[in-house]
Amino acid sequence: MMVERWHRLVGKRSEAVENLVEKGAVRKFAEAIGDANPLYLDEEVAKRSRYGRLLAPPTFPRTFDYGRIENLGSPDIGLLHGEHRIRYERPLFVGEEIRCYTRVTDYREKQGRGGLLVFLITERVGEDTEGRRIFTMEDVAILTPEIRGVVER
């Protein structure tokens, strides 16, 4: 059993990474989720709105680079997504420079029918360039025995 490998990650944090909320990336993302809201896409409409500028969709922060956590491995190899939370302090705008980082906040395990299930809880944060928080995400990743077999190999 190599579950210790995961447990040891709790408390680990990445270095903050600068990200730009790019207009083209927002357009592509809005298209992929099938939401053609003009406040995401149309500069003229956005200019006349209360915001005066384009916004990013609420689930867009998934696209940012939050930096690497040592020994987490490639987070894109087969993790199942159990839960997602996001909390905004204010809306996110196109053209903003933001600083992002991630932290492993908790580890849990549960005996499932097919073996031990490992739950990793991570927090991902986006701040403005002055360090004021814009959003906080919390995600629960589930590692099934099959997935751990692939990743731990």
């Binding site: 989720i33 809201n37 209360r50 609420p58 159990g82 997602h84 909390r87 905004y88």
Partner: peptide
């Protein structure tokens, strides 16, 4: 999650999603 947020998109001019929690 994006699909769950989509019914609120038409109201974006008047407000925004401040918080969302989803269990898959």
């Amino acid at each position: 999650a994006a699909m769950l947020a989509s019914p609120f998109s038409p109201y974006l001019e008047h407000g925004y999603i401040r918080e969302m929690r989803v269990r898959f």
